[in-house]
Design a protein around this nucleic acid. Sequence first.
RNA 1: GAGCCAUUAGCUCAGUUGGCAGAGCACCUGACUUUUAAUCAGGGUGUCCCAGGUUCGAGCCCUGGAUGGCUCACCA
Length: 489
Amino acid sequence: MHETEHDLLKVRRDKLHLLREEGIEPYGERYIVTHQAENIVVEFPSLEESKEEVSIAGRIITKRGHGKAGFAHIQDITGQLQVYVRLDSVGEKQHRLFGILDIGDIIGVRGHVFKTKKGEITLWVKELILLSKSLRPLPEKWHGLKDVELRYRQRYVDLIVNPRVKDVFIKRSRIIQAMREYLNEAGFLEVETPMMHTIAGGAIARPFITHHNALDMQLYMRIATELHLKRLIVGGLEKVYEIGRIFRNEGISTRHNPEFTSVELYQAYADYHDMMEITEGCIAHIAKKVLGTYKVAFQGQEIDLTPPWERITMVDAIRKHTGVDFAPAGTTVEARKLAEGLGLEVDKDATRGTIIYHVFEERVEDKLIQPVFILDYPIEVSPLAKRREDDPDFTYRFEAFIVCSEIANAFSELNDPVDQKERFEYQLQQREAGDDEAHMMDEDYVQALEYGLPPTGGLGIGIDRVVMILTDSPSIRDVILFPTLRPKE
RNA sequence: GAGCCAUUAGCUCAGUUGGCAGAGCACCUGACUUUUAAUCAGGGUGUCCCAGGUUCGAGCCCUGGAUGGCUCACCA
């Protein structure tokens, strides 16, 4: 084995054959596990006293042989535990097995626990069983796996060797669980609506297109859950939510993945003020439940999620951060002058509303570190939101920002079918003029509104971004197990 | 889609002015019954991302390409 052949994979395959020759099956069966690494540490005092036999299974992470004895650390989902294997305790066959084992192999061990001279809680092995032979070497224990591309492409390896990564995804699961808890507790009904749409609606975005063979028709992967959920409000379900994957055929960045997870919820007889309470209440509940605190550190900044969050209208936010007040600028011409005064370029066919939105994006968004609700978006950029009664240029819509990231988008839903149809028709004109992101006409949705949508508050939260903030992750790829990548070759 | 950067052993990384491809860990052989980044003695295991070019000679210089990261654009 040692002359010329040093290939790491070959060595492990040879060991596989050696094991079979020794009568040891390298791929074992069900193994009864009485404890996990963490339980053993927690219950150590009583386990030590009783000499009770425990069994644990996991992957070998380190291994140190000492002739007739040896140590290894095995890792399960809760952490690591040292095991001590000596010839006179396990017998010759299992001792020889220990010698053949590699880092990465999955084993089951049974024995009692004790503390070594150096004080480490350790399992004194009486029985050692190979559960699965690993044929590939793991990355180095000390530096771990750093290569970002490998970490994303081979997330399973990343999870094995980088404990923080496992923590992030366990937290992600708990975050979503806490969100469900909060919404269920508040009386919301979880529903599932189609992911394949004949009309991609509910947002302004470019969809993925697919095809159904039997029906010979084009389908779109959903870009939002909005329109189906509001149909359910028409149907009388009153409080519904859906947590699920959304697909948008757009750019990829540290904040955008082509598929991402959102929660959208709709509540009959509510408005966007109720949605603000749900947003801050839900996020704060999650933080408390998962992290035990309302104060989280994100990339060195302390973020305080304690409700209530600041509420400020878009126009006031612009005045606060730039000193320029757009409220008195009642016309497009006046608004344009103010924007240009701030050094911004203004599009030819911009309107007062799109100018205000543009100024907000360019001059305010990147200053919104602490949680804040930006209220009252211009009508032009809010095709599904209800128009303000006192100021028809604006809508009852808000977005929530934390560390410059848009976390939530909500509004008092437009429930006037005639107004809705007109807005779709406007979008249709934009589409015919070449804007392939403009909203498609959804006749059935308009018809649903004609049956009567009660006054409704609606809210969408980008779950990936919430997870980013709560796990101090600078890239969305750090909170998505398998982010979208090009194939290697 | 554009700009900048990266790609060398299984992993983490060095690599000088263009002159024989390097280290640590991992791995292999041997010793060792409480070690723990175990130790001791020995062993370098490679498509230097790919394809061309310049050159007596390319990991290094030039051109094109691939993948990834960051920034920008689009967007949530």
